[in-house]
Write a protein that binds this DNA or RNA. Structure first.
Length: 293
DNA sequence: TTGCAGGGGTCAA
DNA sequence: TTGACCCCTGCA
């Protein structure tokens, strides 16, 4: 059957999506935007999102999504994998100079996942002053402690805990995830969320500066985390999350001297405009993997 | 074996 | 603008 230009074939194990361009699972799942996808021995990735466990396998130009059906593909995964966006257009638009051309060619199969807002918020609070393997472990333990079980194959997985579940958890229960001082932020943000009830739609209606301002009111959320949340949950794409890596790359390759956060962001806004978020992602992936600067 | 630096920042002074 | 911060890992 056809769905929005894609030919999809449903079988007993999942859904095959034919001729998907600009889709490389390793670029998508290892570019630092998500923490709940694990590489399997066969090169496929298994992940948890939207209360489901799926396995994603690329076979040439086709993508096989296991443990799902056509309805979920249409209602969830089409949007989650941003399949409605033409990445070829984005890539040619941001590849304005040699640096960006190299970065785009390096991460050519990258896509920005439209992840769940709440999970993204807590995940990036956990990411601060932390490294990816440990971030993944903390999120895993937090989910095992406060999330709900899902079985897939012979394994048990856990959904990401709701704001209600986290705000009801005691400090001891949250502390089991070994998040250190971030555990206080998790509890504080969960409690605030139970009152504030901010959601994706809420933030989409706001201007980017206003949406950022709203997020900055949550404990543990600074400028970097706020921009990551806006970008990786698909709310705003004109943000330019600036961590130490992006800062180093921008200083060494573009600005050619030490620069403040504000300076880097205004440079990016001027150069990449509405596509700053995509540019950042190609740049970050390229810089990290090649250990640039 | 033990000690120490540093990690995709944030907060408070 | 600067240092502390919880915990884990890699490396002398």
């Amino acid at each position: 059957m056809k769905y929005r230009g894609y030919e999809i074939i449903e079988n007993s194990s999942g859904v095959l999506v034919k001729n998907v361009r600009d889709f490389d699972p390793s670029h998508i799942f290892e570019c630092g935007q998500c923490f709940r996808w694990n590489r399997e021995i066969d090169g496929s990735y298994t992940g948890i999102a939207f209360w489901r466990v799926i396995n994603v396998h690329r076979d040439g130009e086709n993508i096989l999504i296991n443990n799902t059906g056509a309805d979920d593909f249409k209602n969830i995964w089409y949007k989650y994998f941003d399949l409605g966006t033409d990445y070829s257009e984005i890539k040619s638009a941001v590849a304005k100079d040699d640096i960006m051309r190299r970065a785009v060619s390096y991460g050519c199969g990258m896509r920005i996942l439209r992840q769940e807002f709440w999970e993204t918020l807590i995940s990036f609070i956990i990411s601060s002053n932390n490294n990816i393997p440990r971030i993944m472990k903390i999120i895993e333990k937090l989910s095992a402690q406060c999330g709900e079980e899902i079985k897939y194959g012979n394994k048990t997985y856990h959904t990401f805990p709701s704001a209600a579940a986290l705000s009801n958890a005691s400090p001891e229960e949250i502390g089991i995830c070994r998040g250190g001082y971030r555990c206080g932020y998790i509890s504080g943000t969960s409690a605030k969320m139970e009152i504030a009830r901010i959601d994706k739609k809420n933030l989409e209606k706001k201007s980017t500066p206003d949406a950022r301002k709203t997020l900055l009111e949550f404990p543990g959320v600074g400028p970097k985390v706020a921009d990551c949340v806006l970008l990786y949950s698909g709310i705003k794409f004109d943000v330019f999350p600036t961590d130490v890596w992006v800062k180093r790359v921008m200083e060494s390759l573009y600005i050619h001297k030490p620069a403040s956060l504000g300076k880097i962001q205004s440079f990016a806004a001027e150069r990449f405009g509405a596509l700053a978020g995509f540019a950042q992602q190609y740049l970050f992936y390229y810089a990290r993997k090649n250990k640039l600067s």
